[in-house]
């Protein structure tokens, strides 16, 4: 019961690489440290729907989680894995 979905990374999309407009589900967050805790507290939880609002070569990385806009740093976004 306590196994998060999609532990294996095959077929998963890294958030840092996800194109603008990408819609999917959060599959897994790397690491169990404070940063992961913080992301989950803000709603980036495995199983929730996520939409990439902004992610381009220059600007910020912004996602929409259940109607909330969250800006993520470059470093942390690579910890988040998404499923289509």
């Amino acid at each position: 019961m306590l196994t998060p979905m999609g532990v294996g990374k095959e077929g998963l999309m890294n958030l840092e690489m996800a194109p603008e407009g990408f819609e999917g589900t959060v599959a897994y967050i790397d690491g169990g440290d404070r940063v992961a805790q913080r992301m989950m507290a803000l709603g980036i939880v495995p199983g929730t729907r996520i939409r990439v609002i902004r992610n381009s070569a220059f600007g910020p990385l912004i996602v929409d989680i259940e109607g909330t806009r969250i800006a993520l740093g470059r470093g942390v976004s690579s910890k988040v894995w998404l499923k289509k």
Binding site: Y28, I29, A36, V45, P46, G47
Partner: peptide, 16 residues
Amino acid sequence: EPQPQAISQIRAEWLK
């Protein structure tokens, strides 16, 4: 062993 992601996921799914 702590499983923060599993707990959060259960909570989120229950809530949804």
